Amino acid sequence: MTQSTSYPTGQNIMVNSRQGFLEIENLVKSYPSADGSKFVVLDGVNLSINEDEFICVIGHSGCGKSTLLKIVAGLEQQTSGSVRLDGKEIRKPGAERMMVFQQYSLLPWLTVKENIRLAVDEVLKNATRAEKISIVNEHLAMVNLNAAADKYPDEISGGMKQRVGIARALAIRPKMLLMDEPFGALDALTRGKLQRQVLEIWENHKQAVMMITHDVDEALYMSDRIVLMTNGPHAKIGEILEVPFPHPRDRQELRNSREYFELRNHALNFLDRYFSHDE
């Protein structure tokens, strides 16, 4: 059943999700406490994501955003409920779900090209040497890193390191890309450029994306829907905002639109409400 809520213009914002590629149903995540009780982080999360949809998840620190992403990645197990990708239950990490972390996670003794090739060798075992070289070169070009291919991580900037991580994740052709605040450690200028670059890659090679962010403007610029989480403990999905702007998107054009600011204010008001009160 689909519900909606209104914001200042009286338009509707969709609150639940649809049948999709990733299905999260009645998900609960808890940890045992020292006194024998359970500390419930996530309590009854339901979410559906389509195979070519870009989703951003926003909420205050401690609301379980990263925990939810790790469960989808198979790095953590839910206490109850189910998580299915393409109809198959997620129980462990898999190459069909690749994660990009805020930290760059590159091997310092390997060059840019070798860091990407390592993932390709590990996952695409049946590819020929020529095919692997072609895949690596294709993804180096995709993130504009051809000139840095033979440099080591300590010889490139933070933004370039994150591009290596994104290229490495995409090079093994995952069904879904998971990103945990991938631009959080970058300066504002680099962050904006990399947002645009990632969005262009996704617009040309659409796949399911689930990204954690604290930045409402980033979410409005990049995503199709924004998942707003209530505070933890016992966090759940409070609202899901439909982002109606067509792709490709022009940042300046968006910021000049009334609808952009109405959505932005609605999301910020939601977060302000939960900032001042714990559920």
Rank of each mutant, 00 (worst) to 15 (best):
V143M: 10
V41W: 04
T190Q: 07
R84E: 11
G62A: 09
V198N: 06
K132M: 14
R191W: 08
P246G: 14
F261Q: 10
F101M: 01
I24Y: 11
K65I: 02
A147W: 07
R117A: 15
G165P: 07
D278N: 02
E200C: 03
E262Q: 01
I24G: 08
K193Q: 09
G184K: 04
I13Q: 08
H247C: 13
R97C: 13
L85E: 05
N46I: 14
M229C: 02
E239Q: 07
L241E: 03
R196W: 04
V227P: 02
A235L: 01
V216K: 04
G74T: 12
H214F: 10
Q195H: 14
D217A: 11
G158S: 13
L268F: 04
R117Y: 08
A185L: 12
S48G: 15
K206I: 11
A148K: 09
E155L: 10
V243C: 06
E203K: 06
G184R: 03
I172C: 11
V136L: 09
M99A: 07
E259K: 12
G158F: 14
L85P: 07
N12C: 00
K193P: 00
A127Y: 14
S257F: 01
D187R: 06
D278S: 04
L124C: 13
M14G: 10
R91P: 00
V198L: 07
E131Y: 08
S66D: 02
N231Y: 01
G165Y: 11
L75I: 13
I212Y: 03
D278Y: 00
N137S: 14
H247T: 15
K70R: 09
G36V: 08
S82L: 10
E242L: 06
L68H: 10
L106E: 06
D52V: 13
E89Q: 14
Q78W: 12
M98P: 00
G192W: 05
R255L: 05
M179N: 08
E114F: 10
H247P: 11
A267G: 00
R173D: 15
R173V: 14
E259V: 13
H139M: 08
S82M: 13
T67K: 12
S257W: 03
I13T: 06
M142K: 11
N269K: 02
G192Q: 13
